[in-house]
Simulated scan of single mutants.
Amino acid sequence: MAATLSLEPAGRSCWDEPLSISVRGLAPEQPVTLRAALRDERGALFRSHARYRADPHGELDLARAPALGGSFAGLEPMGLLWAMEPDRPFWRLIKRDVQTPFVVELEVLDGHEPDGGRLLARAVHERHFMAPGVRRVPVREGRVRATLFLPPGEGPFPGIIDVYGVGGGLLEYRASLMASHGFATLALAFYDFEDLPKDFNIVEVDYFEEAVCYMLQHPKVKGPDIGLLGLSLGADICLTMASFLKNVSATVSINGSAFSGNRHIHYQQTTIPPLGHDLRRAKVAFSGILDIVDIRNDPVGGCENPGMIPIEQAKGPILFIAGQDDHCWRSELYAQIASERLQARRKERPQSGHLEMHRPLERHLICDIWRDTDNLCLTGT
């Protein structure tokens, strides 16, 4: 009997949706290698592989069978997807057009040689970033430059503003996925996009306040509050918004610092100075990449540093997700300092925990925070 490669859901699924992978029609205990590959929108190839052994019935289910080596090892049902690495060194997988899918090719090869075995089965699967019924609405309202993603249905829906970090432009792939889980999500640009400033030299909170007002006035957004989601510099912007603006119910900070790094933060009569940095402390890692984790003037005074964002003023819960292998800045240290400040100023004891986080988990953590009631500090690898 010929081997067959089965995927569930078949044909297509959302990028953050679990994908079940199984093989049938193998010989009992047959050694095989599974490979996955996709090309991004600029033609860069991403690949992964893992070695497996069929069970006594000639079947293989990645939800029950541990990988014996390759790009990963152990029981990882979706390892073939999260472990894909680029052929181009240091190339990052980014979805730039959420209206088209990534096309993933999966193959089953005989034996444990990833490039030399006989092809036994093959399947093609589309991984989409917009679930059926999700609506994409470009926003050019006043100064606000953004894209609003609306879930299927009449609404109104709980609202979220999603802010990315250094690099500028407008990235939509996280906001589009959040919309499929019932959130009206605004992917917000703040520099180097259309007529926005080319450079970002000062955090003018007024611009982000305008985005909050846009969301709260939208007929499809359920008030009176919204949530904030930010990454890196975007996380610090979200923490600033939560500290100074009304109508923020909860905030998720992914690798934020709760400090102003290299830019002044300005809102009305308040200015928060940057920590500053010294490029002479940069190092070149063995891989050839510049390691800048030491260049910032890390706070000596901890949670009492005058350059810290006054996060204790935020009225809603805050979830800190801090990568322990972040070589841009000391995310775990900053999350701890932020937690200490919240505990000292709010008289609350934050919860904390550790986990090994692959990208599909990010969405579950984010969706849960708006139903929570406590301040959280969650650190992960």
Rank of each mutant, 00 (worst) to 15 (best):
T4S: 09
L7N: 03
P9D: 05
R12N: 09
S13K: 07
E17R: 09
R24H: 11
G25E: 08
E29T: 03
P31L: 11
P31G: 03
V32R: 04
D40Q: 04
S48G: 02
R53G: 05
H57F: 11
L60V: 12
D61K: 02
L62R: 02
R64A: 13
A67I: 07
L68M: 07
L68C: 11
G69V: 06
G69Y: 10
G70S: 03
L75S: 04
L75T: 07
P77M: 12
M78A: 12
W82N: 04
W82Q: 03
P89H: 14
D97E: 13
E107S: 15
E107T: 13
L120M: 11
V124K: 04
E126V: 01
R136L: 10
V137E: 15
V139Q: 10
R140M: 01
G142F: 02
R143H: 11
T147H: 07
L148I: 00
L148C: 09
P152Y: 01
G155R: 03
F157T: 02
P158F: 00
P158C: 07
D162A: 09
G165C: 08
G168C: 02
L171V: 13
L188V: 06
A189D: 01
Y191N: 02
P197D: 03
P197S: 06
K198N: 11
I202Q: 13
V205I: 08
F208E: 00
E210M: 00
A211S: 11
V212P: 01
L216R: 03
V221P: 08
V221K: 04
L229Y: 14
L229W: 12
G234Q: 10
I237L: 08
C238T: 12
A242V: 01
L245I: 00
V252N: 06
S260C: 14
H264I: 08
I265A: 00
Y267W: 15
Y267M: 04
T271N: 06
T271M: 08
P274W: 14
L275I: 12
L275G: 10
G276Q: 11
G276E: 05
H277T: 13
R280Y: 07
R281A: 15
D291F: 07
D298N: 11
G302I: 00
G302E: 02
C303F: 14
N305I: 12
I309W: 00
I318N: 10
I321P: 04
A322I: 09
G323P: 05
C328N: 15
W329R: 05
W329D: 10
R330E: 15
I337R: 10
A338I: 13
S339A: 15
L342I: 15
Q343I: 13
A344Q: 15
R345L: 14
R346S: 13
E348A: 13
G353M: 15
G353Y: 06
E362C: 05
H364N: 00
H364S: 15
L365R: 00
I366C: 03
D368Y: 03
D372R: 15
N375K: 01
L376M: 15
T379N: 01
G380A: 12
